[in-house]
Amino acid sequence: MNEGKGNILVVGVGGQGTILASKILAEVLLQAGYDVKMAEVHGMAQRGGSVVTQVRFDQRVFSPLIPKGEADYLLAFEKLESLRWLANLRPGGVVIVNDLELPPVSVLTGQAVYPQDIPVKLKDRAGTVKVVPAQKLARECGSIKSQNMVLLGVLAPFLGIGQGEWERAIAQIVPASTVEVNLAAFRAGWEQ
């Protein structure tokens, strides 16, 4: 069990479902017997801004914020956001990144250029980089909105907790009508 502790940064763009994914993540870690803390951001940033959720687990956790450079995992729902938070990853840490570009307004209007060297920069710092076609996998599972579960599914095997515990938590937390789609998306991620 991965030294029995860890720091996970879940980053993305407001509206992508980072909070729901983090909620499931934190719940599974709690059930596994850890002390867990999580910090999230609500309000204005959720209107298409950069969002981050921090999840920490250990025998005892103090700060809900991960000290800079000490995140073990960076779960990024969007490529530019992976770069924004990269310095928070410990050298040699794991990056799981959605192969998705959501250009900020300055790029949309042609005033800035979306960086093209993101994978290279990620590899400079991370020990493991997994680029996940979450949009495509989610669509195949029946809903493009389940990208968050695909990405969670890619992260899950790293944490040493059985697939069954994850699926139980998903079934409990997501709305009843979306359980099947979300479970399918999670499994698609798990198999990556």
């Binding site: 407001g14 209107r47 950069s50 530019l80 770069l83």
Partner: peptide, 16 residues
């Protein structure tokens, strides 16, 4: 305060 990382375009919130 910690400065934003170099070369990363800001992503302020926008009207949906």
């Amino acid at each position: 305060d910690t400065a934003p990382p170099e070369g990363v375009i800001p992503r302020p919130p926008v009207l949906c």
